[in-house]
Design a protein around this nucleic acid. Structure first.
Lengths: 114, 114
DNA sequence: CTGGCATACCTCGCAGCGCGAGGTATAATG
DNA sequence: CATTATACCTCGCGCTGCGAGGTATGCCAG
């Protein structure tokens, strides 16, 4: 066991959902995404860079997000934004999330009452 | 892409959480666990047998659940129940679930309002 | 100007987990 | 006797997380 106390397993797929959601709202670059997720969740969810960048590349390869390079003060930032296909995928993922979330809650809350 | 439309990735770790929760409440056998989870979540969450049994073996190996064989009408059922260690683990997993759940909800609900 | 830090991007490789496919055995039903 | 439901199990692929490591730039302190 490397670190069974980490929240690793429960995080799966969540990164894709959150990234798609944010990129469906506004154009952002990688580093900004990581910071924003940490901020909005009060450090509850931290998407590391070794999760972030491979995910972004995969999403782009699948046509769910689009990128463009933008030079800001000498630095080259890669900005991403969700495509129409990405927004459709987001809806699907959100539905799945709601279904799983409701299922988990009903079991976590239920058995002692029923 | 094998099946990007499946809820596979979002399910990660959830099986362990639900199984531990149920076995912390009452003693159950494998097949019963699968049926119960399907029932309580109205088919929202389906834990297949190829997920269920390896998970049960792993949990037992880690000392989080305990098993005993019981013969019921010629059939041999393997009943499981959560150990004290398993219940502690359940608390930790539940906390992590709450943290992730709150984080996801705040991003899914937030950005358009803020 | 040099060292350190924050920003900003990226990859490699291991390990964990889901899950389709397949396998075994028993009891009941047609 | 064949099929279905119960009940248990494994193999192997493939996706994903993530720690560790790498590159390059701008900025500030010493």
């Amino acid at each position: 066991m490397p670190s069974p106390e980490s929240s690793a397993s429960l995080m799966s797929g969540v990164s894709e959902l959150l990234i798609l959601k944010l990129l469906a709202t506004r154009e952002m670059y990688g580093y900004e995404l990581a910071r924003t997720i940490r901020l909005l969740t009060s450090d509850g969810i931290v998407v590391g860079e070794s999760v972030l960048y491979p995910t972004l590349h995969l999403l782009e390869k699948r046509g769910l997000i689009r990128s463009r390079k933008k030079a800001v003060e000498g630095r080259t930032r890669v900005y991403y934004v969700a495509t129409a296909k990405g927004k459709r995928r987001l809806e699907g993922l959100t539905d799945q999330w709601q279904r799983i979330f409701k299922g988990v809650e009903s079991i976590l809350a239920g058995p002692q009452g029923a």
